[in-house]
């Protein structure tokens, strides 16, 4: 066991006390959990009939389709946000005030606005335009997918722009100075020297922000985009099995997000060893704290 500075290395007496604490704490937590399970069981939530729908191929197919819809929204949102965020970051770092100040205003506006407000704005205002465009390119759910993805792009793009800025500022100053000294222009310094190094520093932060975007695709539920939660709702309205459905949907969502979070954590350790902990943490601190 790694020793914490917060308490002494336990002697025999303290070890005994901690063991009792562990047992008592464990029992209390287990009892709480058991109470919830018992309450659920007494309402018949663990009867086979409530779980049987999840063995039917139609339900599994619907959930798989919904999972794909969730992933589709997440991937589109992240890719578009990366592009939009890069543009904003370039504007934010510009030497020209008439580019820099609008970029700052856009970043700050979309960072302070709730994503759901953006989704509502696009959904109530432009749903039919999205639908029309969707029928041209052959996406029949663009009426709800469009507002969701564009709203996520605007919000996450602003956060990513701050991550990019933090990443570029975290590259040691000597790098840019050396590049200017040998006569490179600002765009060259950015392209050849700063961005390749910054990209590695901020990779963990970008993955962390992707988790936020993936989680936020569930907001599509509210405007009727048929993602996991919306399909789950249809299932439990059909079979009257709210708790089993919520458990199934939660397991799928949480395991997806946990995998991505793990990846971010692993990358963080790796990049921190290669590029210095402070630089990686500076980029990470710009990730939306939600």
């Amino acid at each position: 066991m790694s020793t914490s500075v917060l308490y002494d290395v336990p002697g025999p007496k303290a070890r005994r006390r901690q063991r009792t604490g562990s047992i008592v704490g464990g029992i209390v937590l287990a009892a709480l959990l058991a109470l919830v399970v018992w309450r659920l069981a007494s309402q018949g939530n663990f009867s086979a009939s409530k779980w049987e729908p999840f063995t039917r191929s139609t339900i599994i197919g619907a959930l798989a389709e919904a999972l794909l819809a969730t992933l589709q929204a997440a991937v589109l949102a992240i890719v578009l946000a990366l592009v939009w965020g890069a543009l904003l970051a370039v504007g934010r770092l510009s030497d020209r005030p008439w580019i820099r100040i609008p970029a700052i205003l856009i970043i700050e506006f979309f960072r302070a606005t709730p994503v759901l407000l953006l989704i509502f704005f696009l959904f109530f205002g432009f749903s039919s335009q999205f639908d029309d465009f969707g029928s041209i390119i052959g996406l029949d759910n663009l009426g709800t997918l469009g507002p969701l993805v564009i709203a996520l792009m605007l919000y996450n793009g602003s956060v990513l722009a701050e991550i990019f800025r933090a990443g570029i500022n975290a590259v040691p100053r000597g790098q840019a100075e050396a590049a200017y000294t040998i006569g490179l222009r600002k765009s060259q310094v950015m392209r050849i020297v700063l961005i390749p190094q910054a990209a590695r520093i901020m990779l963990p932060a970008i993955v962390s922000q992707s988790v936020v975007a993936l989680k936020d695709t569930a907001l599509g539920f509210i405007i009727g985009y048929t993602e996991l939660l919306r399909t789950g709702r249809s299932v439990f309205l059909n079979f009257n099995n709210i708790i089993p459905t919520v458990i199934v949907v939660a397991v799928i969502y949480i395991s997806m997000c946990m995998l991505l979070s793990r990846l971010a954590h692993w990358l963080e350790g790796r990049q921190a060893r290669a590029y210095g902990r402070e630089a990686v943490e500076a980029a990470e601190s710009a990730v939306a704290n939600q």
Binding site: V211, K215, T217, A218, V249, Y253, C257
Partner: peptide
């Protein structure tokens, strides 16, 4: 790692 919308669903429906 739980989407907030799912958290609302758990508490509001569950």
């Amino acid at each position: 790692n739980t989407p907030l919308t799912l958290m609302f669903a758990i508490f509001v429906f569950g």
